[in-house]
Amino acid sequence: MANVGTRRGSSWQAATAWLFVAPFLAIFLVFTAIPALVALVYSFTDMGVADIRHPLEVDFTFLDTFARVLTNAGFLKSLWTTGIFIVISVPLTMTIGLILALALNSGIRRLRAVYRSAFYLPVITNIVAAAVIWQYAFTLKGPVNTFLGSLGLLGPNWLGDPNMAIGTVILLTTWRNVGTCMVLFLAGLQAIPEDVYEAAAIDGASAWRRFLSMTLPLLKPATVLVSVLMTVSYMNIFDEPYLLTKGGPLSATKSVALWVYEQFGHGNIAAAMAGSYVMLAIVVLLGILQLRLLSAWR
């Protein structure tokens, strides 16, 4: 870039630049940087709800709160539940998203935009509205079981049975996230030059062979992005279990985020912050692990 500060000098320009980024920085400092710091500090204290108005008068108990959180049966259960969400939902959502992207990218012209919009629509759907629809549709005598009944099947207790409830929450999250995966995979597929395939077709490679040895490796950047994105979003899963099942039945769908929210609601502020920091640490570790694993892949 040429020297742009010709007339009034670059210090004037730098001052203008700081002025322009100041609103963003102010909001970032007050609502991201300081809260992150505050959460870290207070997770070493015994802060309760009574201390909110006088936040400087708490007692430092150092690792006590972390020790209590990490040995709390409810917290460990919520970690396990979140783990189930991640292990099932991330591969499920990514696979369906990739299949839809491949189908839309396979040379069809007609209705392509219509299908893409249909698959994307759940992404922009308000989660509270979606949860209301889900609650209605999956009640014992709701439309889903009525449909199953018309096929001669006995519909399960989707939201009342602990194992089914996890499945129903996963169904909702998958429905809402597949569109994001599809759009990102589609962008990745469209970045692959057409002549790469033509060369392979001339060499006589089968469609499956071409997919495994060419499309998949060339799709690596998109796959890395999507998997990190999905893991982080399932790690933070809150809205779906909160709205659909309130974490129940029998805490079967209580994620870490929901546990943190409940501790906050019960006034166990220090425990909520320590729990959220444990989660933050896991998110960062998982992110690094995924980047490592995926960059080792081919």
Binding site: A36, V232, A257, Y261, S276
Partner: peptide, 14 residues
């Protein structure tokens, strides 16, 4: 990148 759930409690204090 920072998960929102880690921030909302201190945000509420502010």
């Amino acid at each position: 990148m920072i998960p929102y759930i880690a921030l909302f409690v201190p945000q509420f204090f502010i």
